[in-house]
Design a protein around this nucleic acid. Structure first.
Lengths: 218, 218
DNA sequence: CGACAACTTGACCATTATCAAGCAAGGTGG
DNA sequence: CCACCTTGCTTGATAATGGTCAAGTTGTCG
């Protein structure tokens, strides 16, 4: 306990930011903000899961991130959002006015530090995701996804590390991993046949062989 | 000219940061820093091109970004780099001590603002790249790449918008676009046959039909 | 119980990867 | 100055991963 706060000079960055905003709830599949809308707010997930995505003219979709409790989304440099955000399931988010946030950050070093921490977390996730989309096989993508979701769910809500709830549909997973829904389904089946995971139901996954999964993770 | 500085409340963020560092030069293909090394510096490109990349155990490589003059790289939240950086060609970079940078940013709002601008620019490029890697075809990837490089080269060095110099090898392009070297080569040949581009030499590209390229860009 | 959405599975296909030559440009040493 | 080698690029033939199209199955909600 000696120097307990050493890892978080900016203790719980998401809380620092969320404290400045008002909680809002969104129902499954409802839009939190749309591509090209005026970017007036930054958001922090309180409960539930949010997907942040880009759409191409012909309907192809790339989900850039699933945001779990504690994650922030809606950062922009310009004055408009460059992607849309939707509730994957029923969820609560803290909505913080950008103007308020930046005004306060100027005079509040703890807040400024929290903003850094949150936006960098997003950058790092994006960078890891580039490697996945550019160079990993379907099996590696799914394996990485499951491990990551398990780790982050555990961190955010204290869920088990070996049992993952999938709040999102197969289509969402496919659009996140740069695959099709069929390939995601087949890959999960294949991992189950290899006894790497088991699927007690389509939205619950047990990680049976974590070392096999970690091997897929690279 | 009236309100000339409106777009850059933090005028030329890269210059503000670069001013704090010392210029260093690197020769073609030399390493600027390696994955997992202690992250003591942040860098700004002054001239030349830098590639920032991740490697997998079996040698697969993903280039996360090509950094042109004015771009910054080497941001980290933790104390170690999570990727490596190498000189694509002879290049000069400003090397800034992280400790100095962050100490000064605390008391210098212009600098703090410049840091935001630079790191967000990186985040946005990463996010656009996710869509490319996850959902675009080979032809779309190459088209997007050429347009982007032309635009950024023009912005950084005043180069022409219709003639692109490729400072990087086909292998670098492939590892950036999530393709193989052969597919990049074939795709360029194919675009030339369609009269969308021409290739006076392997490292020079003329953008003949920008609207066709923009259609590929989505 | 019926209807609908979400998921799985199968058969076939296409894009891109792999493997293997061949070619062009640039540098070096005789 | 030229033969030789190296490196980087292109092209071709073939293979494989993942995509597409089409049925089925499961599960949920009225």
């Amino acid at each position: 306990m000696a120097k307990g706060a050493s890892t978080d000079e900016c203790a719980r960055p998401s809380l620092v930011v969320a404290a400045l905003g008002a909680p809002v709830t969104f129902s499954r599949n409802s839009e939190i903000f749309g591509d090209d809308e005026l970017a007036e707010h930054v958001y922090v997930v309180l409960s539930g899961v949010v997907r942040v995505c880009k759409l191409m003219g012909d309907g192809r979709r790339q989900i850039e991130a699933f945001c779990l409790p504690g994650d922030a989304f809606g950062w922009e440099t310009g004055d408009r959002y460059r992607f849309s955000a939707e509730a994957v399931n029923e969820c609560r988010v803290a909505r913080v006015k950008r103007s308020v946030l930046f005004a306060r950050a100027g005079s509040n070093p703890e807040l400024a530090c929290a903003l850094w921490a949150l936006s960098f977390a997003e950058l790092q996730r994006a960078q890891d995701h580039l490697l996945l989309l550019g160079r990993k096989t379907a099996q590696e993508r799914v394996g990485t996804f499951l491990l990551d979701l398990a780790r982050r769910s555990a961190a955010a809500t204290g869920a088990s590390l070996t049992e993952v709830q999938l709040p999102m549909s197969r289509q969402d997973i496919a659009d996140f991993l740069g695959l099709t829904i069929e390939t995601v389904s087949r890959t999960l089946t294949c991992l189950e046949e290899q006894a790497t995971i088991s699927l007690p139901s389509s939205r619950r996954v047990l990680l049976r062989d974590r070392s096999a999964l970690r091997r897929l993770d690279s």
